[in-house]
Design a protein around this nucleic acid. Sequence first.
DNA 1: TTGAAAGCGGTACCAA
DNA 2: TTGGTACCGCTTTCAA
Lengths: 350, 350
Amino acid sequence: MPSPRRPHAVTITDVAREAGVAASTVSRALTNPDRVNVVTREHVQQVAARLGYRASPAARALGTGRTATLALVLPDITNPYFSGLIRGAERQAEATGHILVIGDSEENARAEARMVERLAPGVDGFLLGSSRLPDARILQFDAAMPVVLVNRRVPTVTSVSPDQQGGTRQIVEHLVALGHRRAIFLAGPPESWLGRQRWAGISSAAKKHGLKVRRLGPYHPSVEGGLLAGEAALADGATAVIAHNDLMAIGALKRMKARGVSVPADVSIVGFDDIFGADFCDPPLTTLSDRTEQAGRSAVDLLVALVREQSRLDHDAPADIVAPTQLVVRGSTGPAPTAPPPDPKEGDPS
Amino acid sequence: MPSPRRPHAVTITDVAREAGVAASTVSRALTNPDRVNVVTREHVQQVAARLGYRASPAARALGTGRTATLALVLPDITNPYFSGLIRGAERQAEATGHILVIGDSEENARAEARMVERLAPGVDGFLLGSSRLPDARILQFDAAMPVVLVNRRVPTVTSVSPDQQGGTRQIVEHLVALGHRRAIFLAGPPESWLGRQRWAGISSAAKKHGLKVRRLGPYHPSVEGGLLAGEAALADGATAVIAHNDLMAIGALKRMKARGVSVPADVSIVGFDDIFGADFCDPPLTTLSDRTEQAGRSAVDLLVALVREQSRLDHDAPADIVAPTQLVVRGSTGPAPTAPPPDPKEGDPS
DNA sequence: TTGAAAGCGGTACCAA
DNA sequence: TTGGTACCGCTTTCAA
């Protein structure tokens, strides 16, 4: 009667027996090829290949303390903005011989912390994308294990983030050049560092250019949140709306359309992220673009370096990559109307 | 001089010492609580909690042969169609105490097979989404380990797939009701089982309703592929276009617009999947919708059951869930024009 | 350059 | 109900 245990297919011992050498020699031949005689090495490698030997990651991890696994935790896996990040991270993880596990925190700091703690024993390090955690918690995690932040900066923690200062300046200058004098910023979650950067950058650039900007929110950073936010923006009467992200911008756009407000004739709308769909919504969205796939790759490289450093003892100064951003001007922004936008029509806001 | 090895934080032995019991008792108290005296159990659990004990997944996996990890392999992580699947799978994996690792095969059967082989030693089973592998290879994998297919059916292999027969019938009836007599099907990759089902369903329903359908392709199942496909469709002169998926449908839509062909006045377009963006492109897309998040959840449940069965010895008959689909009618379909569509304008097809 | 043996942190069996 | 112990598969000393 067979045991319920699923045995690891071909073990190092099988290879050793078949090759007529000790298990330790097989181990060396496969992972430290230069510490083994050429003839032995090739013989062992051949036997291993013939038997279809695959090392057991669990056994290796138990021995070395390394799992060759990286975790990527995000607030919302389904936000298309993160697709590029996921793909970039996955590709680079594969390229560096790592496995990528993924976690969704559902925009929730508690859930994010739980996720990190749950995953921690099984991974070598964390990629925290758009983390909703407070700085203190991040510093705590960073002290305990390798962490790379994406879309967030915390002093002393390695990170990759898009240049929001330059980006928001581009947005403000674009709107000012079109003659806008008053704008609305539709805020996302207060826990969003990127959101806070965006508001700070916009406020400061706006002051410099004499643009008045009011902030509304917070709203959920989704199309649904944008629907609500769009309603509020209409009530305010500004001629330009800057949304926390494209999801919200698209929601606002929908609401404007439902209300009979013309974009960009009556109101201009700007988003952030240049997500899938931003170029084919109606009108196409003017938005601040960044290279998320590249960010994912860089972040993995940094994380892998951190994991390596951890085992040596020379720690480099933490890296902070600030990636360039670019304003993509499309149809949702236009010259400011000379008269204030019309009152929204009565009717079901769907 | 400290060793380069990162030691597992708090081990079962630490807890045992602190609690004044044997390691095996700690193990039981934590994983088989009913096989331990209430007092001992609670004492141990308390000590474990106080010390912040977390079991080492590697050690557990080595002992039990179970990793509590599931793999999800997809042809294209960035296709928004898969977002729901990823989220559903991730949530249900978490709910059942599993970790989800993710792999992208980039629409490539070889890469998919490599990915499965690479991941296999570290996971308990596979979720293969829209697999591009030949049946034989899938059967081979299925014989070696627990596998659940999503968006694919292969005899004897457990699967979850959307009802394409009913779905394609809905599409054809919709077009026929609008007066269309000739349609084009823009095919995706020949490796796509879903694509083959779609073509089969459409052909058969079309025959029944006297609709003539020609198939063009294959095309890459992306917006870029749709751009090309749209061009070819224009040359054909049919009044309705059914695209392999929404990505292609959106590409075709873009091309029509660039060519000055009006949708749906001149040509109607139908897609599959109802992805993010299908409701706000211009015009919004008529498309066949399925519940991907639910599919992800069901698939994980089935996989977890398979993993459990594997260690018992009673294998149930493989389950085949066929999930309902629903045609969402939006602005991209309309009455067939009485005259054939105008010749496309000359000009740069961008 | 190679082999033998001692862990790594759990689980599970066998006795007590 | 508990403790002792033999693994699980691989890496890594330490000797030979």
